[in-house]
Structures are given as C-alpha cells and as structure tokens.
C-alpha cells in the first residue's frame, strides 16, 4: 500500500505569482478529502502537484515516506487523475482508447466490462470526436479505472455530467474507496461531494482556511 500522503508546507507559483501558499495536510490511507474553494483558489494546482504534473516550489509532498517528485516515475502508476481534459485520442473509439492506454501502461483490464460500468456501449465504433461532453467524461472515467489506483485525484469531476452520471461517478469513487484507495476531489459543489468525502480542505487565494471534518462545515456552504 501507498501509505499516508503528507503535504508538508507546500507552496507553488506560476511565473511570479504564488498560487499555493503554505498548504500543510496529512491524508491517511483510505481517507476521502474534498478540496473546496472559489475559482483560482489553487484547487487544481494542488491536484496538479499531487499528480506529479507540477513540481512544488517550496515544501514537499511524500507518499508512504517517499518524496513524490523524486520517485514520480514509480508512483505515477499508482496515482490516477480525472482532470479537466479527458486525455483521450479524438480519432479512436472509446474501446480503442482504453486498449491503447492499457497497452502503453502494460495494464491488464477488462475493457468491455469497464465501458459497461461507466454506461458506454463497448460495441460502439464511432470515434470519441462524436461523443457528447458527458460521454467523454464517462470515457475518461473508464480510462482512469484502467489503473487500479491507490491515490485517486478528481478535478471538478461533476462537470458536464447529468444526474445519472453524477450518481455513477459517486458510485465508482465509493467503490474505489472501499477497495482501499485514497481520494482527493477538487470541487466547488460541497453538497455533491459529501456523498463520498468525510474530510475537507478549503482554499482561499492559495491558502488553506479550513482543514478537518466535513461535519464542521455549514450545511449551506457554497462556492457558486
């Protein structure tokens, strides 16, 4: 197992401006955290740092005691990201996309089963280009599930999903959690995220302003 994720006094900048300032959190294995805040509060940046897409400029992140950036080649296989972009090839069908990504990572996966799980028809031959935004999100979710991740990072996962899609997503994330994965979900919809997460980190202008249980949050908290 991966062990705890420690975000130790992490700061990150873009160019001259600091986007994350002194974030300090420990996420224990199997916990599910929601990451709340307005647009531009640093949620995506923190997700980026955790996913090893971005380097942290101050402080450090460790996973199971290992420095994340240093061991990124190793750890990338165990971290799954569902980001703003679906990371799919437009000209390939959903099944082909999954087979390509599975092949690249050397991952064994039941591709038709995965597609059915996210509500896509494995027999469909049309390229992802023809998909609606919601279907693309579903395909991206299936891509993420190829990995059997130990740390799952979700950046605004509810975007473009209909109520059925949201339900599906919550179900999938719950089952990942039950399998022992650690979840970090950036969102500005705390109500939807409550279904999965029991911890919350609120960021404001890059600074953490609340760290702790969701029970301590007001029920009508909103970042619209």
């Amino acid at each position: 197992m991966l062990g705890p994720v420690r975000i130790e006094d992490v700061s990150r900048r873009y160019g001259r401006r600091w986007a994350l300032i002194h974030v300090d959190v420990e996420i224990r294995p199997g916990e599910a955290w929601m990451l709340l805040g307005h647009n531009g509060s640093g949620k995506s940046t923190l997700i980026g740092c955790l996913s090893t897409a971005l380097r942290v400029h101050e402080g450090r992140i460790t996973m199971g005691g290992r420095e994340l950036w240093e061991h990124r080649q190793d750890l990338r296989g165990r971290i799954a990201v569902l980001g703003h972009k679906p990371h799919l090839y437009d000209d390939l069908s959903a099944a082909e996309n999954l087979s390509v990504w599975a092949g690249l990572g050397g991952l064994e996966a039941d591709i038709p089963g995965l597609l059915r799980r996210v509500g896509l028809d494995p027999e469909r031959r049309d390229p992802v280009r023809m998909f609606s935004a919601g279907m693309r999100r579903r395909a991206a979710l299936a891509r993420m599930l190829l990995k059997q991740p130990e740390l799952v990072l979700l950046d605004e996962p509810f975007t473009a999903l209909d109520p059925a899609g949201r339900e599906l997503l919550v179900g999938v994330v719950r089952s990942l959690r039950d399998a022992g994965a650690t979840i970090v979900m950036a969102t500005h919809l705390p109500q939807a995220a409550r279904a999965v997460c029991e911890h919350a980190l609120i960021l404001e202008q890059g600074r953490p302003i609340y760290t702790g249980s969701v029970d301590g949050l007001p029920q009508d908290l909103a970042f619209e």
Binding site: T52, A53, K85, H87, Y89
Partner: peptide
C-alpha cells in the same frame, strides 16, 4: 484533449 499530459502522468 490533453493526451500529452496524459502520457506524462
């Protein structure tokens, strides 16, 4: 669709 970033991660 960000596949290059996908490859990196």
């Amino acid at each position: 669709h960000g596949a290059m970033e996908g490859l990196l991660l």
